[in-house]
Design a protein around this nucleic acid. Structure first.
Lengths: 146, 146
DNA sequence: AGGTGAATGCAATATAGTTGCATTTGTTCT
DNA sequence: AGAACAAATGCAACTATATTGCATTCACCT
């Protein structure tokens, strides 16, 4: 996504210590062009140096809680994680391919949600409005298996 | 949701046999005012007469595949199920309370998604555009635990 | 160097869903 | 009616994902 991002800066400005594992996880998420699952992130990190699965889950929870990354639900079983919107990253929705499980970012602005009526009528606390497009990606359509 | 629905009719017009378990599951989903998880549905059915967990999962998959019900992703780990939009049920989005895990239906039309730009630019197959609002429901806000 | 709290690791467990195969049920043909 | 067959259901084991409790290690402060 962003090779110019200052990941340590993102952590410290969220008042989190920039421990090496946290920076590594944030790098994996930030440098990847599309959201990844906790398992994906774990496997990528393991290749460079050992880390515990649980640590990955805990850091992901922490970063979501701090608003540094975003937890994105899929049409599948696992959550995916991407950088939270910030001044370098405009908010955008995602496309989930139910064949290969890959999640792609849509161009910001391709999907606009009209939320005015919701804010007026809804009587709970709204934290997030998530839009997800499900289907089959171009690549999977070309390499048909059925 | 709908006590007037002809559940057997919904099944047969989807070319599915109206077996007793299928009707029971569809009744539970249809008569409930908000979507339920597979586990919820299983527990409700068990109360009246014995059924196997796996049967519930299989029937849910079948009904989703046939377009009779809709699989809805949450901000949590399980999928929820509700009646698919039909002439009695206008399409609508859902609100997920991350405190109590309950999912509510939003009034149809409160959230409109502008998908024209997506259809023009996207090069895969689009099956579904899902909008979900996450937050904390009125009820949970009142009974604060922290 | 020693103490302290945060960060990480490890093993066990929880939760949700899936698979393979056996059994039951319902339908069709004769 | 009864045999034959297919569809539906049940059961046990298993997978994938995530979480918990507690032990260990690390980083910083004095």
């Amino acid at each position: 996504m962003c090779h110019r991002c200052d990941y340590e800066g993102l952590l410290t400005s969220a008042e989190l210590e920039a421990s090496s594992n946290r920076v590594r996880i944030l790098e994996v998420i930030g440098n990847n062009g599309f959201p990844l699952s906790a398992g994906d992130i774990f496997r990528i990190l393991e290749r460079s140096s050992s880390i515990n699965r649980v640590t990955v889950y805990r850091i992901l929870d922490l970063l979501v809680e701090a608003g540094v990354i975003e937890r994105i639900s899929t049409g599948g079983r696992a959550f995916y994680y991407g950088l939270a919107p910030n001044h370098h990253h405009a908010p955008h929705s995602h496309f989930y391919c139910k064949r290969c499980g890959r999640m792609d970012c849509l161009i910001p602005g391709t999907l606009n949600v009209e939320t005015d009526a919701l804010w007026k009528t809804f009587s709970g606390r709204i934290d997030k409005v998530e839009v997800r497009v499900d289907g089959i990606c171009k690549n999977c359509l070309q390499t048909q298996t059925h």
